[in-house]
Design a protein around this nucleic acid. Structure first.
Lengths: 169, 169
DNA sequence: CATTACTAGTTTCATCTGAAACTAAGTCAA
DNA sequence: TTGACTTAGTTTCAGATGAAACTAGTAATG
């Protein structure tokens, strides 16, 4: 009746276990990439309401604007790098932002392939409207943490990025 | 062409700004939801190679398997809740896993709408092959952090989830 | 029981997505 | 110069996505 379950052998049988926990069951609920992903998607979904519902901006569109608001003039390539979005996505976001007249697109005099992106006046107006809301939202979220933890989180993110740079890719 | 941009003051001026004032420019590069999203997408993309390239599993498919490996038998609904994926996505992942014979799908005797999901033998075999690799990968990633930081990160994730539960949605 | 409301899971639809092909422009080297 | 190579950005294509409609079964109320 009781089917033998040999997939997880009791550790007595395995005197020579490697230290690396081959017999420990995999715990999804503490698997960090998974946890990060669940949390982040949740946060993104919620936050995106802020600019989707009220301003009709998609996430990629908002990201382009957010980058331009801070670093314009930039090329599409610059935006893609800074935002970790692929260039097709950036290209599409740029196209629709231009159609909505929220950004301007001028030829780069130094490189005829490239394009100089800026927020339009209207784009800047919207940017100036969204950013305080975003900041406010973030502040609300971070009230779940102590300032030490918030700082710590930033540091951890830095370190994980560095780790990815070095050893994971 | 080049409009003067008086909204974004050159950063030298800002060293002494009051902490929270409304006139501080929005700093995308320290905006936490954005940073989390960039990092997480990067991690997910990289990690997913582990089960995509070698086992042909998509991210949703692997998530379903990971949940079943740990908590089966479960309904599709259970999986959706646990993994924070919407039910359509789960449904599609289940369909393709069943086609690949990696899971079994039985009627729940207590509720004819619901379905009892389990890993098949083959599914379990693959699960048992992937999980040590995933664990290993995670360990590699976490070598960027001290154990204190890793623990702290888990706690921070918990707190942010709680914060979302309470006040953000 | 009926009627109504709800839940599990699937399907449809319009949109979004990433990868790769593509166009056009710049660079390099002989 | 020319040709080979690289880069910026767009487009194409096949597949993935989320929202909402839908089907079928369950629960709650009278």
């Amino acid at each position: 009746m009781n089917q033998p379950d040999d997939r997880q052998q009791s550790s007595q049988n395995l005197a020579l276990e490697a230290a690396v926990s081959a017999d420990e069951p995999f715990k999804l609920e503490t698997f960090l990439p998974y946890r990060l992903s669940v949390l982040t998607n949740r946060i993104s979904r919620e936050l995106s309401k802020l600019y989707q519902e009220r301003f009709g901006l998609s996430i990629p569109e908002w990201r382009v604007m957010a980058n331009l608001g801070r670093f314009a003039p930039m090329s599409a390539q610059d935006v893609a790098e800074r935002s970790s979005m692929d260039k097709a996505k950036v290209s599409r976001a740029i196209a629709s932002l231009q159609k909505a007249k929220l950004i301007t697109r001028d030829q780069d005099p130094k490189d005829n392939r490239a394009v100089l992106l800026n927020l339009s006046n209207e784009g800047r107006r919207i940017y100036d409207e969204i950013t305080p809301l975003a900041t406010e939202w973030e502040k609300l979220l971070l009230q779940g943490l102590g300032t030490d933890e918030a700082r710590s989180l930033h540091q951890i993110i830095d370190r994980l990025h560095r780790r990815m740079d070095d050893s994971m890719a």
